[in-house]
Amino acid sequence: MSSHVIALVGAESTGKTTLAREVVRVLSGRGVDAVMVPEALRDFCVQHDRTPLQHEQAAIATEQTLRIHQAAQGHSVVLADTTALMTAIYSDFIFEDRSLYDIALRDHAQADLTLLTSLDLAWTADGLQRDGPHVREPVDQLIRQALQHHQLPYNVVAGRGVARVQHALSAIEHLMDAPQRQLRAASSPRWRWYCDHCDDGECEQHGLGDGRA
């Protein structure tokens, strides 16, 4: 993937979709070619008027990864409203099926930045998409455990409204500025200290040995 892919993960009703839309809106306003990848699970629920069965989870995870990959081919910044990892998490939580983790984590690792939305927003109903506020903490723990166990770094995004968007943007801006930081570091002179006795190879040990500075 040649673009910056930002993966948004988090328990239900933690503002992932709203955050993705707002970040894309702000970046687009700055002239950045940014796009949001919608959640395949949401489209499935709308199309079938139900939540998926256990054997349908793998296809949803594959579709989510495909959408992200396609978006990355044509845009500079991709905001993914969840990844296949979330499908694996819910397969584990709801069906006790852990079979999707390996592929989901492999696909998730392709993202350049992972943003985990905090539980500091109030839970709200959203039709078939929501199971209830009681599932948020265990799902949040499963996400953290999966990322930490596979050494996939992540940033927790917290706050409300503009503060939440700015929190996410600060992490994304840091990612996007990485090439420039490397150039600045390469071109900046480094400060060096030279010993007054630099022609004496034993001066450091000698100074330590006889108590002289």
Rank of each mutant, 00 (worst) to 15 (best):
D177P: 07
A84Y: 11
L79F: 12
H108E: 07
D81S: 15
L115Y: 10
D120P: 00
Q73K: 10
T87A: 02
A84Q: 12
D120N: 11
D140E: 07
D107T: 02
A163Y: 01
L147P: 01
A111G: 04
P153L: 04
G132Y: 03
E137L: 15
I94N: 10
I89F: 04
S99W: 11
H108A: 14
Q141P: 00
P138G: 11
L113G: 09
H75M: 01
H75S: 01
H167S: 11
T83R: 05
D177W: 00
L152F: 07
Y90G: 09
R98Y: 05
V156N: 02
L100Y: 10
D92R: 13
G127E: 03
T124M: 08
D177H: 12
S99K: 13
D120C: 04
H149P: 00
L116I: 09
L147V: 05
I103N: 03
A80E: 14
R136P: 06
H134N: 06
E173F: 15
L115H: 05
D107K: 01
I103Q: 13
G159L: 06
T82D: 06
W123L: 04
S99Q: 14
D92Q: 14
P133A: 12
I172Q: 04
Q145I: 07
V165K: 06
L152Q: 15
S91Q: 15
I172P: 08
A158P: 01
V77C: 05
L116K: 00
L152Y: 05
L147A: 02
V77D: 05
L115K: 00
D126Q: 07
Q110L: 12
G159M: 02
L116E: 05
G132D: 04
T114C: 08
E173W: 14
D92H: 15
T114R: 06
V135D: 02
D131H: 13
M86S: 10
A88D: 11
A88V: 02
F95A: 13
Q180W: 12
L115I: 07
L142V: 10
T82M: 10
F95T: 11
